[in-house]
Amino acid sequence: MPQVSMTVNGKATSGDVEGRTLLSAYLRDHLGMTGTHVGCDTSQCGACVVHVNGEAVKSCTMFAAEADGATVDTIEGQANADGSLNVIQQAFQDHHGLQCGFCTPGMVMSAAALLKENPKPTEQEVRDYLEGNLCRCTGYHNIVKAILAASGQDVGAIAAE
C-alpha cells in the first residue's frame, strides 16, 4: 500500500492507504479525527468539507493519495490557540447557527473559505456560496445570519422574531 503524508492542522501525519481510500476516510479512520462527517455519497451535502492547500474541497470526493504532500485543515483545527472558538465558530454559537451539529463542520469550513475570498459578503453571496452544504435543521436562517455576523456585519436588523 502506498504511503501518504500530509500536514493536518499543522501536524505532520502519514499512513499507508489503498488507492481507493478517500481523504475523509484517512481523516476519520486513520487519524481518528471524526469531526469531518460524511452525509452523502454523491458529493452534495458538504458535511465533509475541509481545506486542502487552503481551498475548500469535499473530502469524501478526493482520494487521500491526491492530498499527498498537501496541507489540510479540518474543523478540529479551527479554534483559537487557547481552545476558544474562533470568530466563525463563535458566531455560529451566538446566532444559533446549528442544531444537530452534523452539517456544522462543513458549514464552518465553507464559511471560512467564503470569508477568506470575500470578507464582506452580501446575504445572497452567502446563500449562493452554501450551494454545496446541506442543513436539514436550521432552514439556513441562522447559518446565513451567523456568517454575516462573523464577517463583522450588523445582523441586528435581520428578522429574528
Binding site: N133, R136, Y140
Partner: peptide
C-alpha cells in the same frame, strides 16, 4: 434515490423568515 434527484432545500432556496410567538 439520491440527492441528484431528490431536491433538498438549500440556502438559496429560502429567505430569512419572520417568526412571532408572542
Amino acid at each position: 434515490g439520491s440527492y441528484m434527484d431528490y431536491a433538498m432545500p438549500r440556502a438559496d432556496d429560502v429567505p430569512f423568515y419572520t417568526v412571532d410567538h408572542s
